[in-house]
Design a protein around this nucleic acid. Structure first.
Lengths: 178, 178
DNA sequence: TGATTTATGGAACGATCGGTATACCTAGGT
DNA sequence: ACCTAGGTATACCGATCGTTCCATAAATCA
């Protein structure tokens, strides 16, 4: 997972994957079929292990709490010294190298799924009166998504955790109250 | 430029570049040296042709006007049918494929340059009293940068111009007044 | 013990990559 | 008429890629 995360699908060579997994070439192909199939299973592991905070965030009681939890989870994902920086999803959703087409579609589809979950949550928050009616629920969700994606891009280019936290705090300062 | 933009450095093969440029292999190597040098010159063209709106944005009279111009320019960059979606800078700043190291450093360095320009502009805006003193100028700049990067990520994954505009409008709605 | 599964190391495959070298062509200047 | 500069087409180089195949060794189990 970390090899794909760090180097991207095309940049992760079979040899590098074998070394990291500690198995032989034949075993990999017998167990996973091919590289693309392996990546799909890896994405499942990534969502399960690394983006569980998204589920928790959606369960928060208010729009602000959702935003707080989502931003905090995004930053926490960048604090591990063992894991690569940035987002595995974003890296692959932007990869338009020839041959990466199926991979890109797959990853974008996963991203769309979570985006719509967030939109739905903000629609409910609007009904709860969590923010002023002058704000469109869907747009507010997309703005929050853009903010977390922006943080992940910044993290991937080497921005420090402290600066990420300040950025997130400022975004929350801008976040509309009821 | 569009070949690098669409496919990324590693994904842009020499053959594809030759076809797009309409020259022969020997001419390319005689004129540009190697692929990396060609890319550096392409990045210069990109900044000059496609990101001129950043300079204009920094010249706007208020923090809000800067944000408006920056967001508008970011979205306008995504409206061309001839150009690829997303940002050439972001795509390459996240590419950690082996051999892309020098390219990544170069692009990240360009991004840092513009980020600091934006920070400096927001510091001046703070002195002008463009927003409440409870907001930190640097963090506000980073938040704006995160928002534009988030928009570019969304655009790269196929988000429509209409939704990008609504997202930008909502962000501006959140933007602090004086 | 003997049979079966599952792993291994290693060779080989066709394809593609960035980059180089060679031979030929053509327009312009003196 | 001749030389030169800069273009093209084409073949080739070594390296790396994902993938397949094969003979063999280790572990599992009736």
């Amino acid at each position: 997972m970390r090899v794909f995360w760090r180097h991207g699908y095309a940049g992760a060579s079979i040899g590098t994957l074998l070394e990291a997994m500690g198995i032989s070439r034949a075993t990999l192909y017998a167990s996973f079929g091919d590289k693309e199939n392996l990546f799909r299973q890896v994405m499942g592991l990534y969502e399960q292990e690394k983006t569980a905070y998204m589920v928790e965030a959606l369960e928060q009681p208010s729009a602000r709490a959702v935003a707080e939890h989502l931003l905090e989870g995004t930053i926490a994902l960048q604090t591990s010294t063992a894991d690569p920086k940035g987002s595995m999803g974003i890296v692959h959703s932007l990869s338009h190298a020839p041959g990466d087409d199926e991979i890109r579609k797959f990853v974008v589809q996963r991203g769309d799924f979570w985006r719509e979950k967030l939109v739905a949550r903000m629609v409910r928050a609007a009904e709860d009166g969590d923010f002023a009616p002058s704000f469109a629920a869907r747009s507010l969700a997309l703005t929050l998504k853009a903010a977390t994606d922006g943080l992940l891009v910044a993290a991937g280019s080497g921005t420090s955790e402290a600066e990420l936290r300040q950025t997130a705090a400022t975004f929350l300062q801008m976040w509309p109250g009821r």
